[in-house]
């Protein structure tokens, strides 16, 4: 342990042990444990395959068909995908989605790390209090949250206009401001989980390394970057990937607040999937949009994994 930590503190990657985790175990025991592990995995695996993997392949299949309310009318080939390139709403939705991700992911990650750094050393009671405060929007229903924000942003009776003295200004009905309020509300509902994770991750940082670095005269910034940051990197990666996926899939806020408007200024790819499928009943095209969104998310996730340079 000491060897590993010292190597990490020195900025070197710890050498992976070539020893098998099963060293010293009999083959029968390994087999028994493997079977037990699969048994434990089975319920969630069944659920995952039934409700995620199978629909995923069904969706890919339908994306190549002309699929409406009356069922599959024929094979569409790549038509649904080609349509995407000519669809200005998709283009707008793509740009808005990228904007939401580009703003939300770094701000959520940075803010939650900042808050966690401030509270993880606190006494248990205030620490729990702050965790509760920031986690509250996560457990509060999105409908309740949007209703409150609607009140705040109402053009005539909203608190924001009362405070700002801009009575009548339609924050969610203005092309320039609507998307930023979507991002703001998404931000408030996204920071809870990262804060809880970061508080736990920071609490697990090896204090002996921190103390050793401090004894060696390391500044607070150096301690953070050289000691803490590498150790919380897996958490950071998880937070970034989850926030990226959540941002890409931002739907409820838009459905409840703006319906993609005004003038598609808050349209996202995810909302277009819903709108195309359930309002326009063009299910084949909706599936194609969903497939493209999945590919985009996978690319973003791959980039994040690559940048984070970790195997976790």
């Amino acid at each position: 342990m000491a060897h590993t930590s010292a190597a990490a503190a020195a900025g070197h990657k710890p050498k992976k042990s070539k020893q098998s985790p099963h060293s010293g175990m009999s083959k029968a025991l390994i087999r028994r444990e493997t079977i037990s592990a699969y048994c434990f995995l089975l319920p969630s695996l069944l659920f995952f395959v039934t409700f995620v993997v199978v629909p995923m392949f069904i969706c890919v299949f339908y994306s190549f068909t002309e699929y409406g309310l009356g069922g599959v009318k024929g094979f569409a080939g790549l038509d649904n995908y080609l349509k995407l390139f000519q669809d200005p709403i998709f283009h707008r939705g793509f740009l808005n989605t990228v904007l939401i991700v580009a703003v939300a992911v770094p701000t959520v990650t940075a803010f939650s790390l900042w808050v966690s750094s401030a509270i993880y050393k606190m006494h248990a009671i205030p620490r729990s209090f702050f965790r509760c405060v920031f986690y509250l929007p996560v457990v509060t229903g999105s409908v309740a949250i949007t209703v409150v924000w609607k009140w705040i942003l109402d053009p005539y009776n909203g608190i924001l206009n009362q405070v700002a003295g801009t009575t009548g200004f339609d924050w969610l009905g203005n092309q320039r401001t609507a998307i930023w309020f979507i991002i703001l509300i998404l931000f408030t509902t996204s920071i809870g989980q990262p804060i809880v994770l970061y508080v736990a991750a920071l609490g697990n940082v090896d204090q002996s390394l921190v103390e050793a670095a401090q004894v060696d005269g390391a500044t607070k910034l150096q301690v953070f970057w050289k000691i803490k940051w590498p150790q919380i990197m897996p958490t950071t990666l998880y937070v970034m990937v989850i926030t990226t996926i959540n941002s890409f899939q931002c739907f409820a806020l838009i459905q409840l607040l703006t319906k993609g408007g005004p003038l598609n200024s808050t349209m996202t790819i995810m909302y277009q999937v819903y709108d195309t499928a359930y309002r326009l009943n063009d299910l084949g095209y909706a599936c194609a949009i969903g497939v493209v969104l999945a590919i985009i998310i996978a690319i973003f996730s791959a980039i994040q994994f690559k940048l984070a340079k970790t195997d976790d």
């Binding site: 409700f51 990937v241 899939q249 995810m270 999937v273 499928a277």
Partner: peptide
């Protein structure tokens, strides 16, 4: 072969496509 990375991509893709394809 490390399966975690492809599994993560599969999860991300599945979470998206699931909404479209599932009733």
């Amino acid at each position: 072969m490390n399966m975690k990375r492809p599994l993560a991509f599969l999860l991300a893709a599945g979470m998206t496509l699931g909404l479209t394809a599932c009733g």
